[in-house]
Nucleic acid binder design. Structure first.
Length: 853
RNA sequence: GCCGGGAUGGAGGAACAGGCAGACUCGGCGGACUCAAAAUCCGCUGCCCGCGAGGGCGUGGGGGUUCGAAUCCCCCUCCCGGCACCA
């Protein structure tokens, strides 16, 4: 059907909403009818030009200062989502700003391309995981190019490439040789659905982080990395991150590491010639310990039960406990169960015999797996004592309440003064802690100790799509690491992912069979692959020299670029990825491979992108995809909308923002430039004072916006650019022409370029420049233009603003008062009242304080 | 329970370091242009009283410090994030 409207005359893309509207009249129109602003023409054109000039390649030579801008690399699960769009918009703004500030910038990109989703997709599609993975990588790469991100594509990497995971395996062997990778039995988290073990960090509320299945415990022999050996340094080195990382992230890591100070105390078992060590943070309550509890999995528990004649009870309890899921275990909180082992531990200070129990409220993984129980001062112990009829004895008297041991239901776990504690009576609890610990140490019955909540990092995965653990199991030689020369241990090209009983690699006998590197006899490869967080724990090093096949990273290049100057990424990686990377960096440092101990000097985390208050998802029907926005408005609008929405660390609700509004502004800016360049000549035809006002506005904006960029406050930076654009518009309307306008528009483009690079580039060229805007130096504010000649001073009477006056800067109080008293409204409020005092804040405010008498 | 962060117009948010609360944007209302619509441009837009000049109230609630508090102090409510049978 032929439209009765004339066709849009403006040269623009067919997706322009004007056209779309004619085709589909019911459709709510976007703003895309702007004369002169056609992102669908501008954006590809400049992307091509940048590529042709190799503009974003990081130069290894040259003597400009270097800046490593890194954004967390994506996992290729389909196309980029809105979260990626925001995150990379931030990362790209950081990188482009660094360029403008004169740095040589490294802004690389790659993919975290190993992982379980590829395997699940492969099972559904009966294809190799690589197929799905690399197809998604290409999709994401294409969208990134449309977004116009200034990546150095020549350094692109994928963790699933053998050329990369060869060095992930090298890293594993480095840790192994240093004794920081070990195989151990442990009660581990097992996801029955994904049929693999999980790291502690991947279990959320007793469920699998990935698939939400209820996690159970299994005792298996697995590979661990000894991150706990670095716990103290992971805490201590936060000192150097404090000013540069979000407090929130450091706080999360501190919580996660969970350092607690206390003592290890030795308790001798009455009926056996042995001693069990317990960890406590409250050695001051030792006189109140009335029983003793072991974790059911404690290595000595069964032997003690045997000695106490409680074997049957113990076995039954252990069996019951083992069948519990984590969730069931937690559900027993408050109604403690456990079993008496028939033996007694001697309290080293009171000499009393304390019954020994096994109960699963004591965890084998924490402390020593054994505790002294002080029911009066620990809620869990009190619950247990009440359930089992055990004695409660108050030994720390809190300052404000009277405790009754017989009836108390809430343990007093706070401060107080010692009672019922022999020689320690009347000591404040903190002093008693130190004293009792010291006395025990002197007698050999204990020592000060620190325990961490952090566990060693479980890295074995019984999955296919990951880096194989480069170890051979030989009957004679035991564990034999694969020699470095034989790396990488590559994945088999064909794989059956449907094997139910064993992991995919174990199901491939040809792959498993290998000659022992040590003795040559037929042996078996380790069939586990590594947690993908191992892959991502060192990728920032690989970007320095991604093509080297003889070393994981070129030491000189690492020296040139690292540590990362500015790392950006999602808060969801506050613990896992960031903690692992910090650990690996420290380990490689200690092994002499790096000369720094923290990989990321500065960190900024962006918030999430929501839609209607909820996470976007296809099933929820609130999914907005970057491509849709790109199609309608282009990359600059999408990027700028994200950055304008609010502080970058806050969540964005897409329902609250307006890409149409952003698009309108870019169109307006574009028209402003055209209006200026078409206004003819560079003659200052306008009012000289108005021109000077515009120049002051320009320089004030430069100064303020620069401060904003330094603090990642892009939302306010954009607001200030908008305000300057309004000022330019007013100036043009007021007849101002020429250099003042040119200067203002130039500044806007250079400042806008990190956030909306295509339109800034286009307008920069329309303004008469021939080189790329990326090569233009960041504008500097002229201090002389930051000072006002006159200022508007509010006048208050008794703290309430009654009027305002304009005074020259530096005016005296006398001048100000004189002028203020003549203001009609001020005079009115002062009439008949006595001025008791005048507050004069030079160049800011005048306040008459009146006395009513 | 412990640790951390919040609460400002209809919405997102702004306010250096205690000094005109609400920048900038979205939305809304009115006007110009148009046969009409879109787009564009101009103006208004915290609430209440008032024709107006102007006045009162106002940054989750209550108290305090101060000439002056969104901002500092104390108490409280609610929201978000993390940790949590961790001895």
């Amino acid at each position: 059907m032929r439209s009765r409207w004339p066709p849009c005359r403006v040269r623009h893309h067919r997706r322009c909403a004007y056209t779309a509207r004619r085709d589909r009249p019911g459709r709510r129109t976007g703003a895309c009818v702007a004369r002169g602003y056609d992102p669908h023409e501008i954006e590809p054109r400049w992307q091509k030009a940048w590529d042709a000039a190799d503009l974003h390649r990081a130069d290894e030579e040259g003597d400009r200062p270097r800046f490593y801008a890194l954004h967390m690399f994506p996992y290729p699960s389909g196309d980029l989502h809105m979260g990626h769009a925001e995150a990379f918009s931030l990362g790209d703004a950081v990188a482009r700003y660094a360029w403008a500030r004169g740095f040589e910038v490294l802004n690389p990109i790659g993919w975290d391309s190993f992982g379980l989703p590829a395997e699940n997709a492969a099972i559904r599609r009966r294809a190799h995981p690589a197929e799905w993975t690399y197809a998604n990588v290409e999709t994401q790469a294409a969208t990134m190019r449309r977004m116009g991100f200034a990546f150095d594509w020549s350094r692109r990497l994928h963790t699933s490439d053998p050329a990369y995971y060869k060095w992930t395996q090298w890293l594993f062997l480095q840790l192994y040789h240093a004794g920081w990778a070990y195989r151990g039995d442990a009660s581990v988290n097992w996801c029955p659905n994904d049929r693999t073990v999980l790291a502690n960090e991947q279990v959320i509320d007793g469920r699998c982080e990935r698939c939400d299945a209820v996690v159970t415990k299994r005792t298996l022999t697995q590979w661990f990395l000894r991150i706990t050996a670095f716990a103290e340094r992971l805490l201590d080195d936060m000192a150097q991150l404090e000013a540069y990382w979000p407090d929130r992230v450091l706080n999360l890591q501190r919580n996660w590491i969970g350092r607690s100070e206390g003592a290890r105390i030795v308790f001798r078992i009455e009926e056996a010639d042995e001693a069990i060590v317990a960890f406590t943070t409250r050695p001051d309550t030792l006189f109140g310990a009335t029983f003793f509890v072991l974790a059911p999995e404690h290595p000595r528990a069964r032997a003690l039960a045997e000695r106490g004649g409680a074997t049957a009870d113990f076995d039954e309890y252990l069996d019951q406990v083992r069948r519990r899921t984590e969730m069931e275990r937690l559900a027993t909180e408050g109604r403690k169960d456990g079993v008496f082992l028939g033996v007694h531990a001697r309290n080293p200070v009171t000499g009393e015999r304390m019954p020994v129990y096994a109960a699963d409220y004591v965890l084998m993984e924490y402390g020593t797996g054994a505790i002294m129980s002080v029911p009066a001062h620990d809620q869990r112990d009190l619950d247990f004592a009440r359930a089992h009829g055990l004695e409660v004895r108050v030994v720390v008297q809190p300052p404000d309440t009277e405790l009754d041991a017989a009836s108390m239901t809430e343990a007093a776990d706070g401060e107080g003064v010692l009672v019922n504690s022999g020689p320690y009576d009347e000591l404040p609890w903190r002093a008693a802690k130190r004293k009792i610990t010291a006395d025990l140490a002197e007698r050999g019955d204990g020592e000060p100790a620190v325990t961490y909540r952090l566990r060693d990092w479980l890295v074995s995965r019984q999955r296919f799509w990951g880096a194989p653990i480069p170890v051979v199991h030989c009957e004679d030689c035991g564990l034999v690491p694969v020699p470095e020369a034989d790396l990488p241990v590559t994945l088999p090209e064909r794989v059956d992912l449907h094997a139910e009983s064993v992991s995919p690699l174990a199901a491939d006998p040809d792959w498993v069979r290998v000659a022992c590197p040590s003795c040559g006899q037929e042996s078996r490869r380790d069939t586990d692959t590594m947690d993908t967080f191992v892959d991502s724990s060192w990728y920032y090093l690989r970007y320095c020299s991604p093509d080297r096949d003889d070393v994981p990273f070129d030491r000189e290049a690492v020296r040139r670029w690292l540590p990362v100057d500015q790392y950006t990424g999602g808060i969801e990686h506050a613990i896992l990825h960031l903690l692992y990377s910090r650990f690996v960096t420290k380990a490689l440092h200690d092994l002499g491979h790096l000369d720094f101990v923290e990989p990321f000097t500065r960190l900024k985390s962006q918030g999430m992108v929501l839609m209607g208050g909820a996470a976007m998802s296809k099933s929820r029907g609130n999914l907005v995809e970057p491509r849709a926005i790109l199609d309608e408005y282009g990359a600059d609008t999408l990027r700028l909308t994200m950055l304008f929405a609010g502080p970058i660390e806050d969540d964005i609700d897409w329902a609250d923002v307006s890409p149409a509004g952003t698009f309108r502004w870019l169109s307006r800016l574009s028209r402003l430039v055209d209006e200026h360049t078409g206004s003819g000549g560079t003659v200052e035809a306008g009012d000289a004072a108005a021109g000077a006002d515009l120049r002051r506005a320009t320089h004030r904006t430069i100064a303020a916006v620069t401060a904003d960029f330094e603090q990642f406050k892009y939302n306010t930076a954009i607001a200030k650019l908008m305000a300057l654009a309004n000022a330019i518009s007013d100036a043009l309307r007021g007849g101002v022409r020429g250099p003042a306008v040119q200067e203002a528009l130039d500044a806007v483009q250079v400042i806008l370029a990190p956030m909306a690079p295509h339109v800034a580039e286009e307008l920069w060229h329309r303004l008469g420049h021939s080189d790329f805007v990326l090569r233009a130096p960041w504008p500097t504010a002229d201090p002389a233009l930051l000072v006002d000649e006159r200022r508007r001073i509010p006048v208050q009477v008794d703290g309430r603003v009654r009027d305002a006056m304009t005074l020259p800067v530096g005016a005296s109080q006398a001048q100000a008062e004189e002028m203020a008293r003549e203001l009609a409204n001020v005079a009115r409020h002062l009439r008949g009242r006595r001025v008791a005092r005048v507050v004069w804040v030079p160049d800011r405010l005048l306040n008459f304080v009146v006395a009513d008498d």
